[in-house]
Every structure is written in structure tokens, then in C-alpha cells.
Write a protein that binds this DNA or RNA. Sequence first.
DNA 1: TCTGATAATGTCAGTCACTGACATACATAG
DNA 2: CTATGTATGTCAGTGACTGACATTATCAGA
Lengths: 188, 188
Amino acid sequence: MPRNKDALRGRLQQAALELYRERGYEQTTAAEIAARAGVTERTFFRHFADKREVLFDEDPRLRPILTAAVAAAPAGSAPLAVLFHAFASIEPLLQDNRAFTEPRQAVIASTPALRERAEAKSASLTALLAVELQRRGVPEKQALLAARAGMAAFGHAAQSWFENPSVGLRVYLERGFDALGELARRGS
Amino acid sequence: MPRNKDALRGRLQQAALELYRERGYEQTTAAEIAARAGVTERTFFRHFADKREVLFDEDPRLRPILTAAVAAAPAGSAPLAVLFHAFASIEPLLQDNRAFTEPRQAVIASTPALRERAEAKSASLTALLAVELQRRGVPEKQALLAARAGMAAFGHAAQSWFENPSVGLRVYLERGFDALGELARRGS
DNA sequence: TCTGATAATGTCAGTCACTGACATACATAG
DNA sequence: CTATGTATGTCAGTGACTGACATTATCAGA
């Protein structure tokens, strides 16, 4: 019964990712993940709320960074400018997690249940950004609209960065927000 | 054993909504929903993939309407303009479902598992719109960005319309897309 | 009206995600 | 070396969901 504390969480995540890749998410039982990590099924569920959550550990680490970045933006910045800086601030974290994130994305993309959770996480972060924009004085509905639009631009950037990491995320963020502005300019 | 065909689906949806409201989603079993509708648990799962899906029956009806509306937009329309017309085209359907939709939203909003499904549905419709925009010649990434931004504007409109239905959805859609343009104009 | 094909429902057994309760092993302060 | 808190193991249980098979309703045609 190892007591490696946080190391166990990492082993569980690694085991889950491997098994999901080897035989698929549906064909993997929680007990199998736990066994590969050297613990019991019960212990698995003490560390992760469910079988999906084990692949989304980055989310709680993203939150404080985004919160701080929004708060740190210069007073008077336009909402989308604030969001641009917020997204730019998480590049180091995404960079570090890349080795784990890459195979993870493939599994998520091919598993409806995991895509659903990914969408929920994205929506949750969007709501967080909206709240932080409100804290800066942006009216509620406008804040939510801005957060969603900004998240759309981020998605654009992240996908590009994922396909070609030779350039920094920041560059793609500029393109993403530019593309958003372009779309809006060409009219509704 | 009634054989009302489609009527049963409606009874199951109604029963589920009632029970979710009375005692909450988690505290309601699939067997209870089925019993209230006069059938077996097994039959419930033959009509709906899971306990969540029973509240999201509108989704398959929305798809063909949106698809047709995007295809029907005038050639050369800007992406966001196409989406504006697409969203405007579903107003009648939303209008008809209002009596069912209103209590439904409240249950969804207060239940994480249902919010998650709702986000997934929204994402799925967004993907559909992106595909249809591509069919009109919009490049893939730009199409996805536009679809997400447009969906953000729709969310803005739908929320307002829900709070105050005395004006048509179309009016709120105009405001939503205007607000989006305003945000983009004020810059990133 | 009867009959056979078709589709919907019922029945039953089984797997697995997830949870609560309680026992046990580990770690560390003192 | 011991007390104490915390992580883990064990066990039993609930409920979502599925596959297989039996049964019943519907309806077209003889």
C-alpha cells in the first residue's frame, strides 16, 4: 500500500489513459484502472469523481490562473482584450502538459461520453471567465457573450497550435481573435 | 399495454419532467418514470438512451430545420448573417415547446448532470452549423469559429427571450448579434 | 373473420459505475 | 514508542443500462 500521495493520482491518470487507448473507454472498467495503478476500485473513486473525470485534471489548475489573469488586466481594457491576455497566460501550463494532452485529446475526440465531459469543462471555464469579467464591471449578459466568443477564439487558436506547435500559442491567439473580429466586421 | 406509439414518448417525457421537479433528478429512478407512464423500465430505455436524454427530445427536431435554413440563405451571405437566419427559423418550434421548455430549463439549470448534457447538445448543434457553413464554402476553422460565435449570440438572445417573451426572438437575435459585433469592434 | 408476419412490450439475468459504513494499515508529531 | 489523523482495503448495496428471449398487440391479406 504505497503512500505516494499525489503520485497515485498521476498513476491512476496514466493507467486510465493507457487503458482507454488500448481497449477503449467503454471496454475499460474502473477496477482495471485501479488494478493497473496498484490500488482498489474504491480508492480510484476517492481520487476521481467518476471514470471520466480522471482525464480532466488540468481543469482545477487552469481556474486560478485564468482568474488571476483577468484580474490583472489593465483597467479599462475591452472584454475581448482581457480574455486574450487570460488565454495567453495559460500557455506555459498547456506547454508542460503537452505530452499527456496529446494522446488524451485523441481518446476524448473518439469517445462521446468524454467529449460530453470536455464540453462541460469548457462551459464551466467559460462561466468562470464571465464571472470574472463581471467583477470588472462588464454587465452580466455581455460578460457571458464575451466569454463565449472569446472561448470560440481560443478554440480556434488551440486547435491550430495543436496541429503545429512550432509557433507559440500567443501567435495563434492573435489570429483567432483577429478572425473573430473579421467575422463580426463582415456582418450579421 | 397501450400501443399509442409516439404518445408514449410524450408520456415518458412528461413523467420524467414531473418527477425530476418533484424529487430531483438524482432521487428519481428510471423505473419510477416508466411506472408513471404505465410501462416497464426496459421500455423506457428502448425510447431514450438514458435518464438524461428524455429531456432533450427537441434536438433531433432542430437539426433538419437548421440545416435547411443554412442551405436556404442567399448566396454570398456572410457566415454570421447565415447563422442569424438559421436561428430565426427555429423560433416557431421554440414557441410551441415553450410550455414544456420553461419548467424543463429550471430542472436542467439546477442539475449538473443535465447541464452537462445540455452543453453537449449545444456543442453538437454548433458542430452541425459549422458543417453546413463549410458546405457553403466557408473554410473549416473559420466555420467552426463562426458557429461558436453565432451560438454565443443565440444564447444571449434566447436568455433574453426566455426572461421576456413579449417581444419576438428575432428582436433579441438582432440585439445578440449586434452585441457580438460591438464586442469585436471594441477590440481584442 | 381468421391468420400470419411485424413490431412493440414484458420478463429475467447480468454487468458495472458509484456509494456508505466500517475495519485496517500507514505516517508523523510528540 | 505511542497516539492520532489520514489513506486505503473490504464489503454490501443501489441503480443505470444491456442482451436474450418470450409474449402480446397491430395490421395486411387470404
